[in-house]
């Protein structure tokens, strides 16, 4: 059995918080550049060029890409042959978030109670999703999530008879209602199937996939492309100022579901869909 001291988890999480907030993933950086070259709307093109410049400036200076450095969503994939030593794993993750946000001068954006709303001052706690898998590796992925886009997310429990048309209607309604608010061009994660909370988590995990990647399931890959094309016909465009680039990418994750249900969740994410990963 492999032993990992939780202090290693803490240091890794801290480093990943800073990396994710300052270094835009290269696939997204490239997608923004490609969109700027293709965008026919003058306002849209200028805005996309600004976003490319902003990402490059952040990489050069260590300023965060966006002032909304998000709530820290931490995905842990833990090999079942690993034993953690030296303290609580969840506390180590939170300590890593506090370290990373302080050292990186990232914004503390978390309130301790949704109604009383007092800032915790160090961006903790994180939202942790853990999965136990065979093996002795531990993968940590930090995905800071800004709330301009998170607030535009939605979930609906469709009926099986709604089918693929119902899914399409839900996605387009959600994008139209969001309009300029989630900082388009957006990245859209969709979870299809499972239960209510499973669909939401699938949607969140879909955002971790490389920009422009397609589902290995042929019918889902087709749906991803059809929905992306439909979203980009909305006219919302970069910054919502009008144009053809409303979404850079749309990814769908699926899971078996109940005979009575068709849950669908859409997790909206902005042009700064940030994530950084490490394997221990």
């Amino acid at each position: 059995m492999k032993e990992i001291d939780v202090s290693v988890v803490r240091k890794t999480v801290a480093r990943l918080c800073i990396e994710a907030n300052t270094l835009l993933p290269q696939d997204l950086r490239k997608a923004l550049g490609d969109a700027a070259a293709a965008e026919p709307s003058p306002y849209g093109r200028a805005l996309l060029e600004e976003l490319v410049e902003n990402a490059d400036l952040a990489r050069r200076t260590g300023l965060s890409i966006c002032q909304d450095t998000g709530m820290a969503v931490v995905f842990l994939t833990v090999g079942q042959d690993v034993r953690f030593t030296g303290g609580s794993l969840e506390e180590a993750v939170d300590a890593g978030v506090a370290d990373g946000y302080r050292e990186g001068r990232l914004r503390a954006s978390v309130v301790s109670d949704p109604l009383l709303r007092k800032n915790t001052g160090d961006n903790t706690p994180a939202v942790v999703h853990a999965r136990i898998v065979p093996g002795d590796a531990v993968e940590i992925e930090v995905a800071p999530k800004g709330f301009g886009s998170e607030n535009m997310s939605a979930l609906r429990m469709l009926s099986p008879s709604d089918g693929v048309d119902g899914v399409k209607r839900f996605v387009l309604e959600t994008v139209e209602a969001a309009g300029p608010n989630p900082c388009p061009p957006v990245v859209i994660g969709i979870g299809l199937g499972g239960t209510m909370e499973k669909a939401a988590l699938l949607a969140k995990r879909a955002l971790l996939r490389p920009v422009g990647s397609r589902s290995p399931l042929p019918h889902i890959a087709t749906l991803e492309q059809e929905l992306l094309d439909a979203v980009n016909r909305s006219g919302i465009g970069p910054g919502g100022l009008g144009g053809r680039t409303t979404a850079l990418s749309l990814q769908i994750e699926t899971y078996p579901t109940h005979i009575a249900g068709l849950p669908v969740a859409l997790n909206m994410s902005c042009h700064a869909t940030r994530h950084a990963r490490a394997v221990l």
Partner: peptide
Amino acid sequence: TGGAGALIATCVESAEVVAYEDLGTE
């Protein structure tokens, strides 16, 4: 421009808190 936080930071010459300091970033 939403999400151009770094670029906009370079346009800020000074900043001083004038009220509600306990709100931190707010």
